[in-house]
Design a protein around this nucleic acid. Structure first.
Length: 113
RNA sequence: AUUAUAUAUCGGGUAGUUGCCCCGAUUCUACGGAAUCGAGGGAGGAAAGUCCGAACACCGUCCCGAGCCACGCCUUUGGCGGGGCGAGGGACAGAGACAGUGGCUAACAGCCACGCUUUCCCGCCGAAAGGCGGGAGGGACAGACAGCGCAACAGAAAAUAUACCGCCCCGAGGAGUAAGCCGAGGGGUAAGGGUGAAAUCGUGCGCCCCGCCAAGCGGGGUAAAGUAAGAGCGCACGUCCCGCUUUGGCAACAAGGCGGGAUGGCAAACACUUGUCCGGUGCAAGGCCGAACUCCGACAUUUCAGUCGGAGAGUGCCGCUUGACCCCGAGAGCAAUCGAAGGGCUAGAUAAAUAACUACCGCCAAUUUUGUUCGCCAAAGGCGAUAACAAAAUUGAGCGUCCCGAGUAAUAUCG
RNA sequence: GCCACCUUAGCUCAAUGGCAGAGCAACGGUUUUGUAAACCGUAGGUUCUCGGUUCAAAUCCGAGAGGUGGCU
């Protein structure tokens, strides 16, 4: 799990959601927005349209947090990121999910490749 | 061993690497917090659905009100008078909820025990209706002689039976030599008609033998038995209802006696009746404190900026886990349940923690390959919140819903 | 967290407890040189699911499933 200082709070969520720039891939869409802090913050949103059971939604979120945690040091500072999952993304296994997330973060220029 | 039903309990394990939330200790600190350590803790039986009734918190109108506070007067260890605050209690009534009796409970529409009723099976009694006994289930189980309604189709008729066919009696009159026939109309009749879910409580009998020619009468038999005709009648039995009453039971009710009677169904039809219960909102309740920002006022100023005070404000903190708590359980009770003594502290997150990966054990209905005649099994391969159903959001009680295994107990069947 | 409502033919909707219907769409035919329109006809239903009340349930009652909307 991400430490608290890398999570998005209730207040900043609204802000990033409105002002954020969109990036898309087959399974994931991002909203990215610069923030006036010397760190990057993340959160993950899984609609109940993607996975009906809370169990599956939580699993997707847990795995994603672990992946982001691993690459946190290499990421650009000062970004607020909301990760939305699209349909069928619950069918990905761990390694495919990791590849998806890294590719789209590179696309959004949060990660250098 | 298999299947079905019911059900106490359990819900993957071990090791390693890397992490998250809470708690505790220590250190540092710009007092916001940060770092390190810890043989500290970290989802469920249904956490879910939200069908229920509670705890807890706040709020509204009226009334009662223990007590407290100050004031006035008097005949001053006291009495009287009006006023304020006020723990707590009551009423808040509608097109509301509930409905056998007793108990359990904080409370309930839940649970336990009992009663009544109903369906199926078995046995016995009886001519039948029906009754008695046993077993397995079901019952939203007050009231349909207070009102107001509903019942398609079929049927003569569907709730005040108002008679369509038939049957019986009377019969104006008609044709005819007569016998016999036809017959408007009137009266009686619910036994027959065959419908329907339901037809005015149900069942049985209305006879047999002998004597007199017969009708009829007399005698005998059977539990009992004959009218102008006709089963609305008679007799007997059964079921149910009403009134009075005896005994047993806390009660629902049961068993019996006397007398009278036969009133169909639906209240899960009604803004129907009777009885009982109920004020409202929900932890986003509510409390503390008031950041950014906005507005107002004052001060100060050439301008920009600023200082102080007030109001609004949700960044935050509390509520938030010691509780109708958990384990064990002497003892009370048919049981639900209550419970002495002893021991324990067991998630509190907030875009929301409780995990990710690896190895071994584990699991694999169906599908693929190899070994093997096949199966078992082994290996490959697949799965993994590592098995199904499924994850806290104030708390706990119940209901109903979902579901794989392990395991426990009992019955039936096969060996 | 809480509350209200809906589910009927392929689609949009009706239906006092008493034979489940309408419009559009589909299919066949008539008409036309042909198509459309028009006209005639036909088929299509587990009334979301499971129980119950009733002689009888799309309708009344209970439980479940799916969906829509609202408050905070």
């Amino acid at each position: 799990m991400l430490p608290k200082k890398h999570r998005i709070t209730k207040k900043s969520f609204e802000d990033i959601f409105k002002r954020g720039k969109n990036y898309f891939s087959d399974y994931i869409s991002l909203k990215v927005c610069p923030i006036p802090e010397n760190r990057s913050i993340f959160t993950f949103v899984v609609s109940s349209k993607v996975a009906k059971k809370a169990v599956e939604r939580n699993k997707l979120k847990r795995r994603s947090r672990y992946i982001v945690k691993k690459i946190l040091d290499k990421a650009k500072k000062g970004c607020g990121v909301i990760v939305f999952f699209k349909k069928d993304s619950n069918k990905l296994n761990f390694y495919d999910l990791e590849r998806e997330i890294i590719v789209i973060l590179e696309k959004a220029k949060i990660l250098d490749n």
